[in-house]
Amino acid sequence: MIGYLIAAPFLGLLFMGIHRKVIARIQGRPGPPIWQEILHTLKFSFKETWVPRTASKTLFIGIVFVAIAIWVGALCVVLLGGSLLLLFGIYMVQKMVEHGVGLSPGSPYAKFGGVRSVISASSEIPLFAVIGGIYFFTGSLMISDIIQYQADNGPLLFSLLPAAIAMYIVILSKMHYGPFSIVEAKEIVSGYKTEHFGAWRAGLEISDAIRTVVLLMAFVLLFWGALSPLLLIIAMLIILVSLSFVCAVTPMLNPYDSVTMQLVIIVILVAWMAILGLIA
């Protein structure tokens, strides 16, 4: 367990580097080296760290620790086969973290990032479709039970494809440079992270890295089942590259289109799952 907890930030940062590299190559650019995000985080760790004069100091600092803690907790939930509902609860608390990071400094750019994170709550709706679908099919929301169900009945990826697509969209909405990444759009500088520099930014990068690992790992475990560590990483990498491809070929939507698009997709997926439920 401790090994996984230590490896997760590095693996996640490496994944984020690969994500940037794949996007760059698809767009015909050389792109940064794949370890760029690791270097980035190390650089931030040793840069001067400050708190803006207008900030709510406790919240500004405390929210960074909350961000790391929730994703470390989420990683433990996945590794121990805990409740899927708890994992998704943590995913939704991430929204509050983005909101807190954005509102705490008092800066308008960060504030707009925080506000966008709340209006992009539509990205959470697919979560309920995933939860409902999986619970209906497996009769349990414990990840260990879901893995066991797949060992007995085959991967849910095929029998519960709409839920898999819904979760894929959930992960896509949290990827950098994706079509739904409105909280970090360039027109608001770095979005909710704009004022967090130095060690605080390094903390947020580590939180993002663990989140990337947790979401990809959860996708594989929930829709394919248990795999050996090496195969698990390869499977996560395949999903990551597919996400990078989507991010590379789609423009970033404006907030209104992003919310509308996610709502339309989820309505289609819920209808599809309802039909599957009726057939079953």
């Binding site: 207008t54 100091k57 500004f60």
Partner: peptide, 8 residues
């Protein structure tokens, strides 16, 4: 424990 920020 937190004091509010000064929104710009």
């Amino acid at each position: 424990i937190s004091k509010p920020e000064r929104q710009l």
